[in-house]
Amino acid sequence: MRLSAAVAALVIAGAGLGLRAVAAGDLAEYGGDALYTLLIVALVVLVAPRVTAQRAGALALAFSWGVEFLQLSGVPAELSRHSTAARLVLGSTFHAPDLFWYAVGALAGGLAVAARRAGRRRR
Rank of each mutant, 00 (worst) to 15 (best):
A106V: 00
W65L: 15
M1P: 11
F63Y: 14
L111M: 14
A8F: 14
T52K: 03
L61S: 11
A15E: 05
A56W: 09
R87D: 08
L46G: 04
L90V: 06
L38Q: 03
E78H: 14
A24R: 13
L10G: 15
I12P: 09
I12G: 04
F94I: 05
L107H: 02
R50M: 00
L3V: 13
G32H: 06
A53M: 06
Q54K: 11
G16Q: 03
P76S: 05
G31P: 05
L59N: 10
Y30T: 04
A60L: 04
A15Q: 05
R117M: 02
R120K: 10
S80K: 08
G18K: 01
V44K: 06
P97R: 03
R123P: 12
Y30N: 06
F69E: 10
G109M: 01
G74Q: 11
V22M: 04
Y102H: 03
L88C: 01
R2Q: 14
F94W: 11
F100Q: 01
Y30M: 12
G119E: 07
H95G: 00
P97G: 01
A48H: 13
S4H: 12
G66N: 09
T37M: 00
E68S: 07
W65T: 12
R123D: 14
A24L: 05
W65A: 15
A96R: 13
A48R: 15
E68L: 11
E78C: 02
A58Y: 10
G16V: 00
G110E: 03
L99T: 15
G18Q: 02
L43M: 14
D98L: 00
A15Y: 05
A28N: 03
S73M: 11
V104E: 03
T52F: 03
A77Q: 13
R50G: 00
R121M: 09
V113Y: 01
W101Q: 01
L43Y: 06
T93H: 11
F63N: 10
M1R: 12
A28D: 01
L111F: 07
V113K: 03
R50Q: 06
L43P: 09
E68K: 08
P49V: 08
S64C: 08
T37D: 01
G18I: 03
L99P: 04
R117S: 00
A8S: 15
L61F: 15
T52W: 07
A112Q: 10
R87H: 12
A103F: 03
